[in-house]
Computed example of a mutant assay.
Amino acid sequence: MIGRHRTEFAGLPVHEFDPEATPPADPSAVAWRIAFEHDGDWDEDLPSPAFAQRFEQFLDTVDPASVTALVLGSWGYAAFNTPPYAQLCAAADRLTGLRALFLGDMMSEECEISWIRQEDVAPVLEAYPALEVLRVRGSEPHKAPVRLRPVRHGLLRELAFESGGLSAELVRAVGECDLPALTHLELWLGTDNYGGNATVEDLAPILAGTRLPALTYLGLRDAEIADQVAAALAGAPVVARLHTLDLSLGMFGDRGAAALLAGQPLTHLRRLDLNHHFVTDDLAARLVAELPGVDVDLTEGIDADDEDEYYVAVAE
């Protein structure tokens, strides 16, 4: 999941940019990955000059207008160096074909997910109005959390924030965005220890679904509050439009399972993802039995004597 670099993104194989190598004949046939790992020399609170140079080399080597998918890996030491979003936005008039963007394809060996410095990604969305996929990894909760100023974006189909903890401000901002084409929304809510202080009240605009009319996949993943989220989903209007409900990676247990079973019908779903859960055998069997035809993923069930032993899959 986050233990290795992406090998595929937006339906394309990931190709690492090497300024010394001959690029593929068709630059649009791959998702280009640009990264420059730190070598022990970095300037805190500043972009990495080495990464900036690598990015400019990429623009000068590959026909940027033919690039459709871009993956940014390490931008120096991401716990200290700030993300290169200003440089990315400045290149928008050259990357005119860009449709998919992943910001922060890093493994824990390069930078822990809750150490990755982020900032407001709204300028990136505004610079690329034709973007269809945006995935962001990481959020440093104390100095540089991921942020989003509410925006309108007419073509974005997929939005994902991977984190050990998303702030209430970020979650509320997503709910305030106007994203009429969005079909896939994925929020890794995380834990309060790493900045994940969003509540079900902060999720209310998303669960109402009025500003996300095309949504069919909702992932509220890696959530310390997974059981409370499940209780809110039991009556949430957005659920009736979904084909996939993803509550994986979090602290989903018997209370959440009971809430889903007692709530609105879920038999219209194609998939209910509860991977990494704390549901006891009896309730797990009921979920499968009472949702015939639904692919209920109950893999990685974890035995725990009480809720004090629950944990999310991704935190630091």
Rank of each mutant, 00 (worst) to 15 (best):
R4I: 06
L12D: 05
P23G: 14
D26H: 13
A29G: 08
W32Y: 10
I34P: 01
A35M: 10
D41I: 09
E44D: 14
P47Q: 14
F51K: 05
R54E: 04
F55A: 04
E56T: 15
Q57T: 05
V62I: 15
D63L: 07
D63M: 07
A65Y: 02
G73E: 09
S74K: 05
W75D: 01
F80K: 12
C89S: 14
A90G: 09
A92T: 10
L95T: 05
L103P: 02
D105A: 10
M107V: 14
E109W: 13
E110R: 00
E112D: 06
E112N: 03
I116R: 00
E119N: 10
A122H: 07
V124E: 02
L125I: 08
E126A: 10
A127D: 04
Y128K: 11
A130F: 03
L131Q: 06
E132K: 11
H142M: 11
A144F: 09
R147K: 15
H153W: 12
R157K: 14
R157M: 01
G165I: 00
G165T: 01
S167M: 11
V171L: 11
A173N: 06
G175R: 12
G175Q: 13
L182I: 03
L182K: 00
T183P: 04
H184L: 08
E186T: 12
E186N: 12
D192V: 13
N197I: 10
T199H: 10
I206L: 08
T210N: 12
R211P: 01
L212I: 08
A214V: 07
L215W: 07
Y217G: 05
D222S: 14
A223E: 01
A223V: 02
A232F: 03
L242Y: 01
L245I: 12
L245T: 04
L245H: 08
D246E: 11
L247I: 01
L260V: 09
L261N: 11
L266V: 07
L272S: 05
D273L: 02
L274T: 03
N275A: 09
H276E: 12
H277T: 06
R286S: 04
R286D: 01
R286P: 00
V288R: 05
V288D: 04
A289V: 07
P292E: 09
D297R: 02
L298K: 04
L298I: 08
T299N: 11
T299C: 04
G301Y: 13
A313K: 15
A313L: 13
E316H: 09
